[in-house]
Design a protein around this nucleic acid. Structure first.
Lengths: 206, 206
DNA sequence: TAGATTGTTAATCGATTAACAATC
DNA sequence: TAGATTGTTAATCGATTAACAATC
């Protein structure tokens, strides 16, 4: 693995490759070409080859990529070869919905703790997880070794939750609240906001 | 408004500008500079000016942008100055959660119909909406003038739902299912997938 | 007038695509 | 060997940023 700066666009495509490769593996398909991948994922084959080549030579000329081997490699690249613990703050509808993806995330990632600022929510159960009050966050996160945080609270509270995550040593945040949150540069934030997504779609209506 | 092809990146930022401008308006702030906006939204001021300049001259040199006027203009650009009806298929946890954003979307967009393939779900109520069986989709969508569709079904059913949306004349789709769906070129698809989002975050852990 | 800030051009930077030698 | 497909370089395309004249 070279020490070159990999663009965000590349990193965002890797999980998409991985997901499709897993599908192929389930169908007992052993080998796949960049051509196949590109067609199924609506991407340029050259782009797929280039993306993968940033990290090593995973294919065989004239043959394509070995599905199982490529899965293994992408999981390594994305650090999904170890278990990663995730915490979620905001036990509302969206938070509950996301907790149900735990099964989908297989072994690699799992939401292992849920918090909510409303004392009345504490003690509720979501998918085998007990909602905890915010005061317990620091202790719980360090005990469980949580590295990624998810924010599903209302916009007004999001920055505050982000600050708490940061002070607990969280390394990356996925923010669903409809507001831009600020964190120190060493913490990675992705915004996943349903409302802006929907509004940008409207632009493309005739 | 010029007839130039506007990049996707620009269109995705417009709703973020709009959201922040609405915040300013609520605080009775009348004017804002690209400098201010850039600082609050973590964007380069030159980029913000350029984004807006694609659509017209909305600012005043030496002064900045009039908040109310800019809101009006961006709403026009995004076609949010008229009402847009949205339908959702998949009345699971995530679908239910998204329906609760209706209040957040103000007047401009609204989820007006919910469908589910499981007959047992039909008749359930979510946020004043009654879940309908798939057979009623065509009639309901044309009756309500629905133009955008949201998919919150399991991956396996997503393509099938997309096909039905397309045959009902839907113009844009927001897909939450963890699979790449294919549609004719005149239909716009955005993918909003929680699992790939989370997996790409893992890459940035040390 | 002096200071501030836009709109826009030019410069830079980065990402995608095409092309092809290498090779299975 | 002939056909297929990679890895990689070069060409293209596009997006971001800097700089500054225009002007409020």
């Amino acid at each position: 693995m070279k020490t070159q700066k990999i663009s965000e666009a590349v990193v965002r495509r890797l999980p998409i490759y991985l997901r499709f490769l897993n599908d192929l593996a389930m169908k007992n398909i052993m080998t796949v070409s960049s051509q196949d991948l590109g067609q199924k994922l609506d991407l340029n084959p050259a782009q797929i080859r280039k993306d993968l080549a940033y990290f090593g030579e995973f294919g065989k000329k004239g043959i394509g990529y070995d599905v199982a081997y490529l899965i293994e490699k992408i999981r390594q690249i994305l650090k999904l070869d170890r278990h990663i613990s995730v915490a979620l703050v905001g036990a509302g509808n969206l938070g509950r919905a996301l907790c149900n993806y735990n099964t989908y995330l297989r072994n690699d990632m799992k939401i292992v703790a849920v918090f909510d600022a409303m004392p009345s929510k504490a003690g509720e159960t979501i998918n085998n997880l007990t909602v905890q009050p915010m005061q317990e966050m620091k202790a719980t996160l360090s005990q469980l070794g949580v590295r990624i945080g998810i924010i599903t609270v209302p916009a007004m509270e999001a920055q505050n939750v982000a600050n708490q995550f940061v002070s607990c040593g969280i390394e990356a945040i996925l923010n669903f609240a409809p507001v831009v949150i600020k964190v120190p540069p060493e913490v990675r934030v992705h915004h996943a906001d349903f409302t802006t997504e929907l509004q940008s779609l409207a632009y493309y209506l005739d």
